[in-house]
Simulated scan of single mutants.
Amino acid sequence: MANTTNNRPISPHLQIYKLIPTMVMSIVHRITGGALYVGSLLVAWWLIAAASGQAHYDWVNWIFGTIIGKLILLGYTWALLHHMVGGLRHFYWDMGFGYEKSVSTKMAKATLVISLCLTVLVWLIGVVVRF
């Protein structure tokens, strides 16, 4: 009996694939989706603290006001906006548009740029409204 497993194709892996923008944005979309779970817990923590009284609310606000807290909030803002823009990109594909390689590559790059710009805009509005 012949060994038929020797002629089977080998599944490609990341050392064979060349990273392209659409692949990277797909991976980042999944990562930001996971990060939103943790960020949602932070939002829930803040809401529970607000409902628990002034002392708890002030303590949570103090934590979010530290440098590390602000970096976490900045990352959550970017993850939320990046995931939203990536979702709009997927919605566009669901409608049957943007499958051409040049269009999908431009959309992948635009996803990153738009999400970063929106994050800066949201934080600038937050700073202006605060003062």
Rank of each mutant, 00 (worst) to 15 (best):
L81Y: 07
W62L: 07
A2F: 11
T4L: 12
K106G: 13
A49Q: 09
A2R: 06
F131D: 04
N3V: 04
L116A: 04
L42Q: 08
H29M: 05
Y57C: 03
N7C: 06
L47E: 14
W59Y: 10
S11P: 03
V28R: 00
K70Y: 15
C117Q: 00
G53T: 01
Y99P: 03
G65T: 12
T4K: 09
P9N: 02
H82V: 01
D94T: 14
F131R: 06
V28F: 02
I114E: 04
L121K: 00
S104R: 08
L88I: 14
L112H: 04
T5M: 09
V127K: 10
T66E: 14
P12S: 09
V38R: 02
L81P: 01
I48V: 14
L47S: 13
G53Y: 03
L88G: 09
L14D: 10
A49R: 05
V127S: 11
P12N: 14
I72K: 07
I10S: 14
M84P: 03
F64C: 02
F131L: 13
T32M: 07
V24R: 02
S102M: 07
I72G: 06
V128R: 06
F97K: 15
S102C: 04
A2W: 09
L14I: 10
A108L: 05
A35P: 07
L71W: 06
G98W: 06
W59M: 07
A50P: 02
V122C: 06
L47Q: 15
Y57V: 01
T22R: 03
G65V: 13
I20S: 11
Y76W: 15
A79Q: 01
T4V: 11
G86L: 05
G126Q: 12
Y37E: 09
Y76H: 14
T105K: 04
K18F: 12
P12Q: 15
Y92K: 13
K70L: 14
G65I: 13
T5C: 05
H82P: 05
V127A: 14
R30G: 07
H13M: 12
A44W: 12
